[in-house]
Design a protein around this nucleic acid. Sequence first.
DNA 1: CCTGGCACTCAGTAGAATCGAGTGCCAACA
DNA 2: TGTTGGCACTCGATTCTACTGAGTGCCAGG
Lengths: 347, 347
Amino acid sequence: MTRRVKPEKSSAGLDDRKAAILEAVVREHIDTAQPVGSSAVATHGELAVSSATVRSEMVALEREGYLSQPHTSAGRVPTDKGYRYFVDHLQGGAVGPVTQQQIGDFFRTVRGEVEDVLSQTSTLLSRLTSYTSVVVGATQSFASILSAQLVNLDARHQLLVTVFADGSVTKHGVYLDHDVTPTDVAEASRQINALLIGTTVESRVQVPSGNDDVATLVRESVSVLHDQRPTREGEQVYIGGSSRVAEAFDGVETVRQVLTILEQELLVVSLIQDMIDQGVSVAIGSEHGFEPLASCAVVVAPLTVDGHPSGAVGLLGPTRMKYGEAMAAARAVSQELTRYLEGEPRV
Amino acid sequence: MTRRVKPEKSSAGLDDRKAAILEAVVREHIDTAQPVGSSAVATHGELAVSSATVRSEMVALEREGYLSQPHTSAGRVPTDKGYRYFVDHLQGGAVGPVTQQQIGDFFRTVRGEVEDVLSQTSTLLSRLTSYTSVVVGATQSFASILSAQLVNLDARHQLLVTVFADGSVTKHGVYLDHDVTPTDVAEASRQINALLIGTTVESRVQVPSGNDDVATLVRESVSVLHDQRPTREGEQVYIGGSSRVAEAFDGVETVRQVLTILEQELLVVSLIQDMIDQGVSVAIGSEHGFEPLASCAVVVAPLTVDGHPSGAVGLLGPTRMKYGEAMAAARAVSQELTRYLEGEPRV
DNA sequence: CCTGGCACTCAGTAGAATCGAGTGCCAACA
DNA sequence: TGTTGGCACTCGATTCTACTGAGTGCCAGG
């Protein structure tokens, strides 16, 4: 079968009219949550063709996997591939002035500790978009240490309290198998402080050898701080608007599944981190590989503070989410948040 | 109309048979989530009466507000008042050995910082009961201060880091309207530490007067620490198993409402705190005054560490929750958690 | 006071009929 | 060759009806 090459077809894309039709279908379906028929596209859209033409294009689009039919005699619904094409090609969206205003106002007036700001940011982003939002807080791997001290809880339990330049504070328990004197703890604390100030948790430092209590305490403390667990503990997750899940999906079962995922913060972090690492900003349907989230789309925007990757903001919605708005909002918030975090020293 | 006084009737209670019938209805309805009819009670239950008798008692129970009928030809469903009577009079339940075992295992093996333990406890409690669980962490109002130091972020921003005897650590930003020297900060830090060690955030301490930077820093720091905001910041909330909400209620709208409440942690804290303060352990339906939670029941058990009220554990479920199990589980977990928190110094 | 019996009520279900949005296909047309 | 109007067809959704049966309220007899 020889076949003439159609315009744009060979370049693995869609010709203009197909693209326009796909776009119309996606737009309409996002709006109405209903399958959209050929006449709706023909009437509503800007392309001056009849519904019959649209229909024949639609069968093509379906054959190529961009659309699907819930059943015969129904309209078409975009597939994940359809949404993907839409997102990749037909984008273009900035946040509206009102939203931009709200974001600006928020960061102009917000005060307090980083944790609170991140948490509130998550709420803000959720409110702006009507989707569930996720803010993954920075690790302090890059922040230099301002102070590290060992506090005596009792004879064999100490607490290592570390303050970082970004205003974050961590604590780690340091346990020994025998009692130590407060004097030794104080001395160890002094040495630890001297040793660690100015370094980061990624720096290697010279620890004292020796078997005396002070040296042991110092070694233990440094190692407990440097041993970031595989599930990096510097990362906090703030989930805002989880009730939006109940709005976005109609089946109670789907809602339950999505909530179950959201409960497992580690899962959420790694999902988002993976996306950031791979440089994608949208994952649609099962692109991210979590089956329970097959009916979801995730939008992320990275946070980069002083050149270091420092977490991300994300949005979770149904695959028929308003990608334009969501991506624009995520981007805007991540920018402003970045600026905020880079600006005034955060406390 | 003169009327003979029925047994137990005058004492604002229910006579034995009514109580038994009410109990049977509640039990059955909790089990099946369906309205329960007279024959089910007559057959299933232990009382040796016919369904006709049960029926006539049921109309009485309905007249008195313990039961209600969804519609004429349906069985009866307990009202909030019915559940209340059930909970108040017909209780009796301890956790099963398996559950007790799981709780024991958990606290025997769990390690880590208080926050993590509380968070995991919340997950545990939710898993044990299949309801959404809430753990409200202790305030440090009663814990004495082990260490307080001021860390220099930049010329006019300092961070007050305080370590408490219970292993908790807080940080507070201290801002001045002019620059201060690192030397002054160090000196202030020394003074603050000396001043605060051994006190609690509720103690009044003698702060230095004077207008020099050091004195100002000390005053600012002490006041920022003592000024617990009305929404006490020492309280952390850990919500476990929020996906259970989707299991407990069938209407998506109800799910959304409950989730919306759970998002507002302050609301949750104050709800639970109120219950604790008033000494109630179960709030059914609208007893707590939150209309959005009218279809919920809340079970709480206080945490009391070393004699001080230190938060609570709670469970949130539908009004037809398994009160016996839930209360027993909450009590058992709160006891074990208390023991854990009082035991090994917590880090 | 209890109980078996009986007429009655009414939500839920099943089946039949209908509706209509939307399709696929085709012949005619530009 | 691509586009279009027309047309028969499909099939989910909706409506209507009839029926079922769980459960009730009431009453007369024990």
